[in-house]
Design a protein around this nucleic acid. Structure first.
Lengths: 236, 236
DNA sequence: TCCTATATAGACCATATGGTTTATATCTTT
DNA sequence: AAAGATATAAACCATATGGTCTATATAGGA
């Protein structure tokens, strides 16, 4: 596909280093397929320019003081413009890459990269793709897997150790569920159409089975052991 | 680096399609730098072979009946061998790719890929890298970002609505934290070196501020509003 | 049919919890 | 210096909660 026949893509640059900013602008202008519609040395100004020019892509420096790059990505995505963010950074910090991608950056390039690579990255992003250099991609995945390894391990142990909730009868589960909503004995009795003393009996049995000795602990045990996966609501 | 001088890498294949299995074995044998130490048409057998031969890498088909590929990855990682898993699949299912990588696959290749690519993928994985073809990498990131977009959005709304926890004083927070561990007033008093009545005063103030009327509801409010991000432990 | 698990419910009692009010002592801020 | 927020603590009281024991009805399994 020959670029000459296409409308130039609008690019906006945000970087607190003016030298760098000017350098990239020069590079992109020379390339000829891009139209640098604006440059900014901080996120606030950048946001205004984005609103004004609605660029196709923003090259956003990650390592800026005050309102930093990550925050910038979030705020750009909050603007309802169809602008893609390509993160720029001096360092291949795995955590930073991970977080940037997590909140929606379409790519991440290092400032040390060759200009041709940068051009390529911008084009990929413009074409709706994600661009991560191989090296960064590796770091990303390492970090990604590490993050989830812990999670998986925790889940494993949780699943392996005996879940005392399994010993509860159906009725006891109903009672416990109401307890996890902060309802009083009298309230439970009303809801289940049984007497308060019956509720107490059930509750005592629950305590026995869960090996706890008050409702708070029972509720905590229930929550920690997947009794309710959905968010627990407080009954008012 | 010339491969001829290195020890051949041990490879193991698991795929329920025997034709395919044989094909890959042939390919790898021809290549000459790999030693296919075993093949299996199901995960159970594969696991035993892995224990026996401790291969450097396992090519694991994702689309198998019964014990499927994902489960296979998990079980291989549970064996404490230093075997890397390269996932094989007929489809570029974003969800499947995401999950496979999440639980520790070192790479993901499509069965339709050229043999040279497969060889390259195996070598990359053997060198401790992650290998994802560009196309799959894109799908992965799309899925990844989508997954977190929802999460971020949910967090945003949660943060925007007023969090009554912010009104608590430091001391009240300490007390509440102990309450969320199912500790009694007397216990809290002991831990904080204050009298039980003081604890009661704090607790009452907490109730006022959180607009609840008993400890269970206070604890539930705390948990639901990010008072403790880490897993809440029950003090026994 | 007998036994066991389950759901129901009462009595009795000790203690924990929650509501309210009042009172100091600090410390910070105006 | 005065005002406000915070941490401390006591007195008093009503009620909720938890512990233990006993008892009945019913359903399902051995």
């Amino acid at each position: 596909m020959r670029r000459e026949f296409k409308k130039k893509s609008k690019v906006l640059l945000i970087d607190d280093n003016y030298e760098h900013l000017a350098g990239i602008r020069e590079l992109l202008n020379l390339e000829g397929t891009f139209d640098v519609v604006g440059i900014a040395t901080n996120v606030s100004v950048g946001l205004n320019l984005i609103k004004k020019y609605q660029p196709d892509v923003v090259l956003l420096d990650m390592n800026m003081p005050e309102r930093d790059g990550l925050q910038g990505i979030l705020e750009i995505s909050k603007l309802d413009v169809d602008t893609k963010v390509l993160a720029l950074s001096g360092y291949d910090d795995a955590d930073l890459i991970f977080r940037a991608m997590k909140i929606g950056a379409k790519g991440y390039v290092l400032k040390t990269m060759a200009s041709a690579q940068l051009i390529y990255a911008i084009e990929e992003v413009l074409n709706g793709k994600i661009y991560l250099p191989l090296a960064l991609s590796s770091r990303f995945f390492e970090y990604f897997q590490q993050t989830f390894r812990e999670e998986t391990a925790a889940k494993e142990t949780a699943e392996e150790e005996e879940n005392l909730l399994n010993y509860l009868t159906q009725r006891e589960e109903e009672v416990l569920e109401l307890l996890t909503q902060g309802i009083t004995y009298k309230g439970v009795a009303n809801k289940l159409f049984i007497s308060e003393t019956t509720v107490k009996t059930h509750v005592n049995n629950i305590f026995q089975k869960l090996q706890v000795n008050d409702r708070t602990q029972a509720v905590l045990y229930a929550i920690n052991n997947g009794f309710l996966t959905k968010k627990v609501k407080i009954a008012v």
